[in-house]
Amino acid sequence: MYRLSTRLLSAFGLIAAATTLAHAQSSADYFKGKTITYIVATSAGGGYDLYGRLISEYMQRYLPGSTFVVRNLPGAGHLVGTNTIFASRADGLTIGTFNTGLLYNQLVGLPGVKFDLTTMSWIGKATTEPRVIVVSQQSPIKSFADLRASKAPLNFATSGVGSANYVETTVLTSALKLPVKILTGYNGNDDQLAMRRGEVVGTMGSRSSFDQFVRNGYGRYIAQVGGKDADTPQLRDLVKEPLAQSLIALVQSQGDIARLTAGPPGIPQPALDALREAYRRALEDKELQEKAAKLERPVEPAYGEEVRKAIVAALTQPPETVALLAQALQKK
């Protein structure tokens, strides 16, 4: 009886080994001759497009025999593209990139969300986008302390109600009781021009969008969330309120997972492993890194499971944070 069972076991073991081998074989071959659509949830030409094209070019190199096609699917603040990725067939042949800020939309349950970020097949993220509070050079505000101490309300520019930049500005403003009046409708680089005209004092956004603005002497950073830049103090060291700390942590986790790549839920494990492996090798490729450096686009990758866990963690928020977010979004 005993011998039989060991025989059976070893037989099973053999079969199992054989199938894993077949899996490994097939996952390497799986993409041979296949076309992988890489959806970019913005129109051609922006940062997402740039990362998307760069990453798909090098992933193709590390999935021999595959062809990557970049498809721009802009609309409704990345919602159109993300919904499309989520609803596509889970065969590994459709993946894509979109704004991590959509996790706010999911947290609060904003309209138009037809995805669940926690279940998506996470492949990796390319970089970290620290958030900064930037103020115009001509304003009397020289530091975060000045901002807090201001008697008159200060105008801050945001893009639109519901956008990630609006959400972050609103929740931090209300949690820290900052004397800030939030204006909406500043898209693209409108906020920089508005600061130069003096109609707004500052704004909050990704550091990479303002580096040139600050380098040209038009503005200064007064606080930062995430990142390792020594020239700007971290916002978490400047404030004490526990609620604000938890919100800063949320904003930071959002900024840490920037320029992500993901597929629909349920991509078969071997195919997902192959995609993750190709992604890792693409991001570690010296040539890709050189190109990105030339474009002034930082590369600080993280891969697969790590990214998935971070997303799940960011979406597991205590009810009071969710309530604050919801309140921020309904204020207008």
Binding site: P74, A76, G77, L79, V161, L329, K332
Partner: peptide
């Protein structure tokens, strides 16, 4: 999508009209 209220105007659930 109205940037001042964050609600879609005359666009409902048709995402292609939000912009």
């Amino acid at each position: 999508m109205d940037p001042y209220t964050g609600t879609p105007r005359f666009a409902g659930n048709f995402l292609f009209l939000w912009d």
